[in-house]
Design a binder for these strands. Structure first.
Lengths: 161, 161
DNA sequence: ATCCCCCTTTACGTTTACGTAAACTGGTGA
DNA sequence: TCACCAGTTTACGTAAACGTAAAGGGGGAT
């Protein structure tokens, strides 16, 4: 689901099965008992590529343990991934998501962390509303221009014929 | 003005004086009598950088005459620039704008050109509406998450104290 | 002559979120 | 043993729309 940003990317798989993801909460909900997941497990469950998961790790969003070379993701990683995807979904950049996750890790009892997240959410919502206003304006402009064009077409019915 | 796209760029001057620009029409309206403009004239009038104008030229959007090395823009270039900026403003890419302008140049009597433009405008409007729907969804999700967080904050009033 | 300003060209840098290719390792079934 | 699959790392490629730096030309004012 979604891009928000006018899809300039290939067009991904779009079948994001983790539709039930949730920005808050969900941080502790297990996944049908499982405790550890391979990279393949997560790609299937969340509909993202393995490359994406490694990329997120590279960016400090995930930090799976290792079994030699192989990555092993725990419930914590899974929850973080869910958070990342939902964050993206509502328009946060990975960097913004990382900041929030880092705050969560500091975990000063979770109070200021929650407050910061709340502020960010509201700020983001405000940004989105401004975006929507711009889009409305653009749509109106396009509609107006369309009418003008139609009028011109009506005036010049078949050109010179 | 505007971005539509979540401003990831520096934040431009924003003071776009060509507020009266128009997507259609305006193609022949002169500018207070002037017939020829320097690059500086246009940067001031439209609030874009000289670099931008050269960039547009490089992309085939403008084609000013030359006086030696100096660029001389005519009314036609001015009108095209206006069209480019308005196109951007409603979310067309420069490439899309160029296609429309090219069609205009073919000028087969302007009829099919107008029809194509009309179709593009409507298509674009449809895209924008889809975007708006996504934004609405994101806003709703953020609002929901915010409520959850507030609930959590209410439950954990002052942490351990 | 020197400063200063505007103009020019060429070309690399920026941002985001990965895709994709190359080359390699390790385990498994036939 | 060979093929094959899944995993790994490194590193370059992509898209959009310019910004910015480097290096130089031309002309006017002082």
């Amino acid at each position: 689901m979604s891009e928000l940003e006018p899809s300039r990317r290939p067009a991904e798989l779009q079948r994001r099965e983790a539709r039930d993801a949730d920005l808050v909460a969900g941080f502790d909900r297990g996944a049908a008992g499982r405790e550890v997941f391979t990279i393949r497990d997560l790609t299937k469950e969340f509909g993202v590529s393995a490359r994406t998961l490694r990329f997120y790790e590279e960016k400090g969003l995930l930090a799976p343990r290792r079994n030699g070379e192989q990555r092993l993701y725990g419930r914590r990683d899974r929850a973080r991934l869910r958070y990342v995807l939902m964050g993206k979904c509502v328009g946060f950049s990975l960097e913004e998501v990382r900041e929030m996750l880092d705050l969560y890790d500091l975990g000063d009892g979770q109070r200021t962390q929650l407050q910061v997240a709340l502020a960010k959410f509201q700020e983001r919502a405000a940004r989105l509303e401004r975006q929507r206003a711009e889009i409305d304006r653009a749509i109106a402009e396009l509609a107006r221009a369309s009418l003008e064009i139609q009028a011109m077409l009506a005036t010049r019915p078949k050109d010179e014929e």
